[in-house]
């Protein structure tokens, strides 16, 4: 069994390395797939493992974009002047400035989002259930609206970043591997985290927070740390996206509440909430569905996506992993009393 697992992981890793070269036409889509995996995995940290269903994790994605962009620009030019010129093309970046800005910007985005998660979490984690979901959604919408009114960071026009200095195809592969690296790290981090006492504690919060309180578990602290960890990876992903997209604006690409913001939730539900592989599987399925509808359902793709959300939520909420777990509990090491099994069957 352990050997099989090693082979599986090795195969996935090998595919990760080969994919962009084997399917060069799909470079950007593959990078986006990793982005979906990252946001789904991090959403599941709070949503699936801790029971706090946020609708506002996209806030960290958008904030990550802005922080990364502002750091990389601010290191070289005055930000106000830069955004005022809005892609006038007069601002040049050397290779060192570009890659240095990218590295510091992306890292800074992750760290900044972590800190912000703690601050916002301190206020919102007193909210439970639907109030938490709506409250976080409110944070994300408010951030988008405020940023689009903030001229210093480009207002509704957004920000245009410098273009990748090499040729176009290397650029695609470069960003693919950035996303893949963050994606693999996120997965490994989550895998490790869920095996620790910390992981058990956030599961306890999900299953019965009042009991966890009564057992003296530092519930608020765990909630804040978990969200900060999730926010870190989303912030990184946002930072990379900013450079990949080159130009982004607040409402449609940064704080895209009804696009990526809800997609990540659907990915997790589709794959199976509260499992390690669920978000990954869900992200792949969802991404496939999305690309297919985008190509073949001209105009109606959004309706199809909305329908997918409704159908997933209403009819298939346990997701792929939930279905497998229910069907073959032994595979997951769950011991069931023979009696209850008969009742289930």
């Amino acid at each position: 069994m352990a050997k099989n697992k090693t082979i599986l992981y090795a195969a996935i890793l090998a595919f990760t390395f080969i994919a962009p070269f084997a399917f060069p036409a799909f470079g950007t889509q593959l990078a986006t797939l990793w982005l979906m995996i990252i946001v789904a995995l991090t959403w599941d940290m709070t949503g699936g493992q801790m029971g706090y269903n946020s609708l506002g994790n996209i806030f960290f994605y958008g904030t990550g974009m802005y922080v990364a962009a502002l750091i990389s620009i601010g290191m070289v030019y005055d930000i106000g002047d830069y955004t005022n010129a809005a892609g006038g093309g007069i601002y040049k970046f050397t290779d060192l400035q570009y890659f240095g800005g990218l590295a510091l910007g992306v890292l800074g985005a992750g760290l900044f989002c972590s800190v912000v998660a703690v601050v916002i979490g301190y206020l919102t984690f007193g909210l439970r259930g639907p109030y938490f979901a709506i409250g976080t959604l409110g944070v994300a919408i408010a951030a988008g609206e405020l940023v689009s009114n903030w001229d210093w960071v480009g207002g509704g026009q957004g920000i245009a970043l410098p273009v990748y200095p090499g040729d176009l195809d290397t650029g695609k592969i470069f960003f693919y591997f950035l996303f893949a690296a963050v994606g693999v790290s996120t997965f490994l981090f989550a895998k490790w985290l869920y095996g620790t006492r910390f992981g058990a504690a956030i599961n306890a919060i999900r299953d019965d927070e009042e009991k966890a309180d009564a057992m003296g578990i530092h519930t608020l602290r765990y909630k804040l740390y978990t969200w900060a960890m999730a926010a870190f990876f989303v912030g990184l992903a946002g930072g990379i996206s900013a450079f990949q997209l080159i130009h982004f604006e607040p409402l449609e690409s940064a704080y895209q509440t009804i696009n990526l913001g809800i997609f990540m939730v659907v990915c997790v539900l589709l794959g199976g909430k509260g499992t390690l592989w669920g978000p990954v599987i869900g992200a792949i399925l969802f991404h496939l569905f999305k690309e297919v509808t985008w190509n073949y359902l001209l105009g109606w793709q959004w309706v199809a996506l909305g329908a997918l959300i409704v159908v997933t939520v209403v009819y298939f909420q346990d997701g792929v992993m939930g279905y497998l777990m229910h069907r073959y509990p032994e595979l997951f090491g769950i011991k069931v009393d023979e009696k209850t099994r008969e009742e289930v069957a």
Binding site: R197, M215, R221
Partner: peptide, 15 residues
Amino acid sequence: LISLPHRKMKIWDAL
């Protein structure tokens, strides 16, 4: 295991 006394744990113990 969940009931271990978290008050006696530092954050790195929890990890």
